Simulated assay, not measured.
Amino acid sequence: MQAQRYTSVYVILMTLVVVASNILVQYPLAGTLFGVNLADLLTWGAFTYPVAFLITDLTNRQFGPKYARVVVIAGFVVGVTLSWWFSAPRIAIASGVAFFCGQMLDISVFNRLRRMSWWRAPLMASLFGSVLDTALFFSLSFAAFFSFLGPNDDFALGVSPIFGVMTMEAPRWISWALGDLTVKMLVALFMLLPYGALMSILKPMSSLEKAA
Results as ranks from 00 to 15, higher is better:
107 I>W: 05
19 V>M: 04
56 T>A: 13
150 G>Y: 09
95 S>Q: 08
130 S>V: 01
197 A>L: 14
71 V>D: 03
106 D>E: 11
100 F>V: 09
200 S>C: 02
181 L>Y: 14
90 R>S: 06
34 F>N: 14
109 V>N: 10
88 A>D: 09
25 V>D: 07
69 R>T: 10
138 F>V: 02
23 I>S: 04
142 F>T: 01
136 L>F: 14
92 A>W: 08
110 F>H: 05
120 R>A: 15
138 F>K: 04
60 N>Q: 06
106 D>C: 10
158 G>N: 11
9 V>D: 04
90 R>W: 05
99 F>N: 00
120 R>P: 02
89 P>N: 09
53 F>K: 00
72 V>E: 07
191 M>V: 01
7 T>M: 09
35 G>A: 10
115 R>E: 12
76 F>P: 00
199 M>C: 07
58 L>T: 01
209 E>S: 12
2 Q>R: 15
12 I>N: 02
123 L>V: 12
113 L>D: 12
168 M>D: 10
133 D>N: 15
100 F>G: 02
102 G>K: 08
187 V>W: 11
142 F>W: 10
8 S>P: 01
187 V>M: 13
155 F>L: 10
64 G>P: 11
92 A>Q: 09
194 P>F: 13
15 T>V: 15
76 F>H: 00
20 A>R: 03
169 E>K: 13
116 M>R: 15
1 M>Q: 10
50 P>T: 03
111 N>W: 11
7 T>F: 07
40 D>R: 09
51 V>E: 06
130 S>M: 05
76 F>D: 00
90 R>I: 01
168 M>F: 15
63 F>I: 01
95 S>V: 08
186 L>I: 15
208 L>Y: 05
131 V>R: 00
134 T>S: 14
176 W>C: 05
153 D>P: 02
161 P>Y: 10
209 E>I: 13
63 F>T: 00
124 M>L: 15
200 S>M: 03
189 L>G: 11
28 P>I: 05
11 V>K: 06
211 A>I: 09
122 P>T: 08
78 V>Q: 07
141 S>D: 06
205 M>Y: 07
70 V>K: 07
137 F>R: 08
82 L>W: 12
1 M>I: 02
26 Q>C: 04
45 G>R: 02
40 D>C: 01
189 L>I: 11
132 L>E: 12
32 T>A: 12
75 G>D: 05
76 F>C: 00
98 A>K: 03
